[in-house]
Amino acid sequence: MNTAIWIKRIKCLIIVSAITSIGNMISTTKAGNPVSPLAAIPGLFFLLVCTILGCIVYELINKVSPKNLPAIAYISLVTILLTIPGFSPIAEWAIDATNKVGLLPLCTPILAYAGISLGKDLDTFKKQGVSIVIIALFTFTGTYIGSAIIAEIILRSTGVI
């Protein structure tokens, strides 16, 4: 277990939580339902703990097996298990607490880091920009038509339509 990595990790998670709590206040105030930074802390703390637990699972598995899933798969799994009502005793508290933190205000500081580091990749972006825009629109088309075709086939074969 690498101490420097863990210090960096925990430092970053605490800073992001702090920035989010304030960004969340601005965004919820604009939406007419203000949540103070203090009220957002339990939810952010819960997300932080889930993240750290997921990372611990990841590193433990790393020790015993050369093949491992990415850390986010474990973080997601830990969070899901802790928030199934009836299965986890803290589920209701956790859902209630994290509902005070919006998804978008949490994204903003993350993309701020991405924006700061973006400057060094601008050339690549310029070179591929137009094709990425067109391809992205094709992905939107693909998922919609793909789902519609499968839904149509199954609804027809099961006699719903």
Binding site: L13, T51, S76, I80, T83, I110, G119, K120
Partner: peptide, 26 residues
């Protein structure tokens, strides 16, 4: 500074994963 910012994306995005996963259990 741009170089040093990049690992923080990876760390902070983990917390976003937890937030997204919140919609599953319930």
């Amino acid at each position: 500074m741009m170089e040093e910012a990049s690992p923080y994306i990876g760390i902070s995005v983990m917390m976003l994963t937890a937030k997204i996963a919140m919609s599953v259990g319930p």
